[in-house]
C-alpha cells in the first residue's frame, strides 16, 4: 500500500528536466516518427507533384527496382560505403596511433589533419573537382613537370568516378575519425601499456589484441557517425560530379531528391527513401538488439 502511494512521486521526480525534454520528445514523435510513417504510407500511392491518397500497392517499388539509375545508385553507395568505412577506420586509427607516440608539435599536426572536417561537403566537393580536373588539377601539374603520359582523370571516367568522390570524402572525414580514436587511445590506462611492456609484448600486438578491444565503445560511436554520413551522401556528389558522367556517380539520396522535386513524382521519391530507411534498419536493428538487449541480461 505504501508503495502505491509513492508511485505518482516517481512521475514527478525531476519535473523540470522532464518538462524541458517535452519539446524534444514531441519533435521526435511528430516530426521523425510521424514523418517517417507518413512517408512510408504515401510511398504506396501514385502521388505526383502533390501528395494524394490513391493507393497503388507496390507499383512504385517495382518501378524503382527496375530503374537502372537506382541500381547504379545502390551499387555506388555500397562501394563508397564499404571503402569509406574501411579506409577511414584504418587511416584514422593509424594516424591516431602515430599521434599517440608523444611526438613534438602534436597540436599542430592534429589541427592540420582535422582541418578538412571544418569544410562543408560542398566546398570539399568543389575543391576536389578542381584538383581532379584534367586541365587544371593534379594531372596537369604532373604533366607540366615533364611526365607527359601521366594519366589521372577519375571524374570523367564512368568506371572509376566513384573513387574520385571517395578520395574527397576520405580527405574530409578521416580527421574526425583520427580525433575520436585519439581520444579513445588516451582513455586507455597507462598501466596497461606498462604491464604489456613488462610482459614483453611487442607494440603492434598490444595495439591489436589489447588496446583495440578495449576501445570498443569508441569504435561503435565512430561507426555510427561514419555510417550515417555514408547513407545521406548527397552534397558531395552534387558539388563534385552532379551524378555524372552520365549517371555513373548517382547515389540514392540524390535519386530521392530528383524524383521528389524535379521529377514531380513524390510517390517514387517516397518509395526510394523508404528503401533507404529499410537498408538502415536492416543494419541497425540486429546491432541494437545485440548491443542493448545483451546488456539487460547482464
Amino acid at each position: 500500500m505504501a508503495s502505491e502511494a509513492k508511485r505518482p512521486i516517481g512521475l514527478f521526480r525531476n519535473l523540470a528536466a522532464k518538462i524541458a525534454a517535452i519539446p524534444m520528445i514531441l519533435t521526435a514523435l511528430v516530426v521523425f516518427l510521424g514523418g517517417t510513417l507518413w512517408t512510408v504510407t504515401y510511398s504506396f500511392t501514385n502521388s505526383k507533384l502533390l501528395p494524394r491518397a490513391d493507393f497503388v500497392g507496390f507499383d512504385q517499388y517495382e518501378r524503382l527496382w527496375a530503374t537502372e539509375r537506382w541500381q547504379v545508385s545502390i551499387e555506388n553507395l555500397m562501394i563508397y560505403g564499404l571503402c569509406s568505412l574501411v579506409f577511414s577506420f584504418i587511416i584514422g586509427f593509424v594516424l591516431a596511433a602515430l599521434m599517440d607516440q608523444k611526438i613534438r608539435f602534436e597540436n599542430t599536426f592534429r589541427t592540420i589533419i582535422l582541418y578538412p572536417f571544418a569544410l562543408s561537403f560542398i566546398v570539399t566537393g568543389l575543391v576536389w573537382q578542381w584538383l581532379l580536373n584534367p586541365d587544371l588539377g593534379i594531372q596537369n601539374v604532373i604533366r607540366s613537370l615533364g611526365f607527359t603520359n601521366f594519366d589521372f582523370n577519375p571524374l570523367y571516367n564512368p568506371d572509376i568516378v566513384i573513387y574520385g568522390v571517395l578520395i574527397a570524402g576520405l580527405w574530409q572525414g578521416t580527421g574526425l575519425v583520427m580525433v575520436l580514436m585519439l581520444a579513445g587511445l588516451r582513455g586507455i590506462d597507462g598501466d596497461i601499456w606498462k604491464a604489456a611492456r613488462v610482459d614483453g609484448i611487442p607494440m603492434w600486438k598490444t595495439y591489436l589484441f589489447i588496446v583495440i578491444p578495449m576501445m570498443r565503445p569508441v569504435f561503435i560511436t565512430t561507426l555510427v557517425i561514419i555510417a550515417s554520413g555514408i547513407v545521406r551522401l548527397y552534397d558531395l556528389i552534387v558539388a563534385q560530379t552532379s551524378g555524372g558522367p552520365g549517371i555513373s556517380s548517382e547515389v540514392p539520396a540524390k535519386y530521392v531528391y530528383d524524383y521528389m522535386f524535379q521529377g514531380q513524382n513524390l510517390g517514387q521519391g517516397f518509395a526510394a527513401s523508404t528503401m533507404m530507411l529499410l537498408a538502415v534498419a536492416i543494419v541497425i536493428i540486429p546491432w541494437a538488439m545485440l548491443e542493448f538487449g545483451g546488456k539487460k541480461r547482464v
Partner: peptide, 17 residues
C-alpha cells in the same frame, strides 16, 4: 516532368557512356 526525368536519366547516360 516525371517522364521527362526518366528520359533525362536514360539519355544523359547514353550520351556519356
Amino acid at each position: 516532368e516525371d517522364t521527362n526525368n526518366q528520359l533525362n536519366d536514360l539519355f544523359v547516360q547514353f550520351f556519356q557512356d
